[in-house]
Design a protein around this nucleic acid. Sequence first.
DNA 1: CAAATCCAATTGGTATATTAGATATTTACA
DNA 2: TGTAAATATCTAATATACCAATTGGATTTG
Lengths: 222, 222
Amino acid sequence: MPRTGRAPIRRRLLRDEIYDTILNAILDGTLEAGEQLHDEELLTWLGTSRTPIREALNRLAENGIVELVPHKYTRVVPLDFRNINEAIFTTGVLHEHAARKTVGNLSADQLAELQGFAEDARACLKSDDLAGLGPAIRDFFLVFEQATGNRIMVETVEGLSLQLLRFLTPREGLTGAPEIVEQLEAINAAAHTGDAAATGDLIYAMYEPTRRNFIETFRGQD
Amino acid sequence: MPRTGRAPIRRRLLRDEIYDTILNAILDGTLEAGEQLHDEELLTWLGTSRTPIREALNRLAENGIVELVPHKYTRVVPLDFRNINEAIFTTGVLHEHAARKTVGNLSADQLAELQGFAEDARACLKSDDLAGLGPAIRDFFLVFEQATGNRIMVETVEGLSLQLLRFLTPREGLTGAPEIVEQLEAINAAAHTGDAAATGDLIYAMYEPTRRNFIETFRGQD
DNA sequence: CAAATCCAATTGGTATATTAGATATTTACA
DNA sequence: TGTAAATATCTAATATACCAATTGGATTTG
């Protein structure tokens, strides 16, 4: 029972559909890292005109998923652990802050959400579903940001999380995954006790070593 | 001698020029808050075709400056102190973290930059140049983020700072401005002593009350 | 062999027509 | 007369075809 849903109110614009389609194709490996995207091919693939395709590509470029080099090429941004480093670190700072501000005042529903996403992560690990692990981790921490009531912080984290999803999704044998799930469960437990300082410390302790883990895991792959 | 320059390598794409043009028009009040933007009017005003205009508008919408309501209207996002609240708070968290991580290891050049932007801010205050104050404050804190070497954090803060610019630019008699400049100078002094903890505390002490100040300043204006 | 030139590939931009969603207005009907 | 369905009228979204600008490499030329 995945709880990943964050219902989009309106998602019937062609450019948004295309954005999702291309993004998902990148996340599930249909479009490979570094692969070149040609206008004409996208046109026949998606069966629309260039207008919404280019708008979707621009948005993907804004989010660092696609690279647009004028008059040369459009391509999927190659996997670069420097990017994931930086994005994880940035979101980590925000997660830590949000947790320190909200833990102790979380509602029963919010605590249940944390619990649920932690369980989702564990289930994904057990069934080797790395594609589901990324969203579970993202949504787990988003509970803290949403609890602050700061919509801009939520949107910022959502955007940055795309880098995390790109890295977690297509890979097999990510060595750090079990530890990450354990840490998630520890953070969940701390949040349930209402100890904000302990929760914050756990998050800090998580994103610092996570960064190093990513570096080691993917060193020399590019 | 403004030091606001952050030289763009290539900025010769029409959509980028248009983005800057519209953004500046919004920041300097040429386009008012809440004002509706009609495709046809922009077309004749900017003298280009629809394509680059819509691409610029999409990017502005992504940054929360413009609101695109499908099939209804496009408008400048009305001034909303909830947005500035949230953006200031989010950047504040990142500023504080970046400062705590870098102060003590800043180069002479970086310290000189801090000093320069603080002086810029003071000069803007003295000459009632509120339009210059926003960029000075933004660039002052960006020194910390740039010192971390985290490009994604830099880009994130740059994007969020647009909300700050919108609020600081067009207003007269912003009551909190002198205090802000004083705090900037205090932070600059602390950074020069190399005391990261003190610098972080000062930044935290700055963005918390700043948020309240904004609320009081603009209460009931919408 | 080096420099200039040409040519193909690709995206950026132009121009205009068509589609479709949202709103207000009118009309038809109870 | 009141209300709901049909319609007119905005607006932005998308479609289509074409041209321009830039790049990189192949080709020519001195």
